[in-house]
Computed example of a mutant assay.
Amino acid sequence: MIDFGQLVQMAQMVKEKAYAPYSGFRVGAALLGKSGMIYTGCNIENAAYPVTNCAERTALFKAVSEGEQEFLALAVVSDSADYVSPCGVCRQALAEFCGTDFQILMCRSNGDYKIMTLGELLPESFGF
């Protein structure tokens, strides 16, 4: 069984490490691998915006670089009172390694979350 609360908590903790001097929009992500390992990531901005890396891809790339390629769930948090979801680029990056039933916890700053699947968020991806 997936401990969603732990994923949200870890994403909130890593959000504090975000480097977001341009947007001020800090994001944290916690990615649960099939092995049970949790990989975290925060957004890292750059003055040349295309070089910026989202929290979700930071976590995904860390996991893959450590040998994990199968995943169960992802929590995404920010300072926003609204639910935050992965951007389109992150959704497609996740689709490379995750199936349509992959669970994404989109969180509010107060810790509340709703769950959607990758298939719901990216119904016509490359690779499905």
Rank of each mutant, 00 (worst) to 15 (best):
V8C: 08
K15W: 06
M13E: 13
E45Q: 11
A73C: 11
L94G: 12
A55K: 01
S109W: 13
R91I: 05
G33R: 03
G67F: 02
S65W: 04
Y22C: 07
D79S: 04
A81G: 00
I44S: 06
M1T: 14
G33V: 00
S109A: 15
T58M: 11
L122Q: 15
M106P: 04
P21D: 01
V64Y: 08
S125H: 14
G67N: 03
K15Q: 14
C98D: 05
Q9F: 11
V77K: 01
A75E: 11
T40E: 08
T117R: 12
N43Q: 06
T40P: 01
G127S: 10
C90L: 01
K34T: 01
A30H: 01
R57N: 08
Y49E: 13
V27W: 03
V51A: 07
K15A: 04
R57G: 00
P123S: 12
G28F: 04
R108I: 09
F102C: 04
V14R: 11
F25I: 10
A29Y: 00
E124H: 15
F4G: 00
A81E: 04
A30K: 01
Q92E: 14
K34W: 03
E16D: 10
S85G: 05
C90E: 01
L32E: 03
I38R: 04
K114H: 14
G33D: 00
K114D: 13
Y19L: 01
D101Y: 08
A20Y: 00
A55H: 04
Q103N: 04
L32F: 02
E120Y: 12
E68V: 00
F128Y: 14
Q103L: 12
R57K: 10
L7M: 12
A73T: 13
L105D: 07
D3L: 08
F128P: 11
E124C: 15
G28D: 05
F126H: 15
I104H: 11
G119E: 10
E70P: 00
N53K: 15
A48N: 09
K62W: 05
N110A: 09
D112Q: 15
A93G: 07
S65D: 08
S125A: 15
T100W: 12
A59P: 11
A47W: 13
P21M: 01
A29S: 07
L32Y: 02
F4R: 06
A11R: 05
F71H: 06
I2S: 03
Y19M: 00
G88L: 12
V89Y: 10
C107I: 12
L74D: 06
Q92I: 13
A59E: 06
C90R: 02
M116K: 15
S35L: 06
G127D: 12
K62Q: 10
M13S: 09
G67C: 01
S78P: 05
G33T: 01
K17W: 10
K15G: 02
D101Q: 11
C90M: 02
V27Y: 10
Y83H: 13
E66H: 00
F61S: 03
R91C: 08
C90K: 02
L60Y: 12
G127V: 11
S80L: 06
A18S: 10
I104Q: 10
A55Y: 01
V77D: 01
G67W: 03
E96S: 05
T40W: 02
A63G: 08
S78M: 04
L118K: 13
A48I: 03
F102Q: 07
N46D: 14
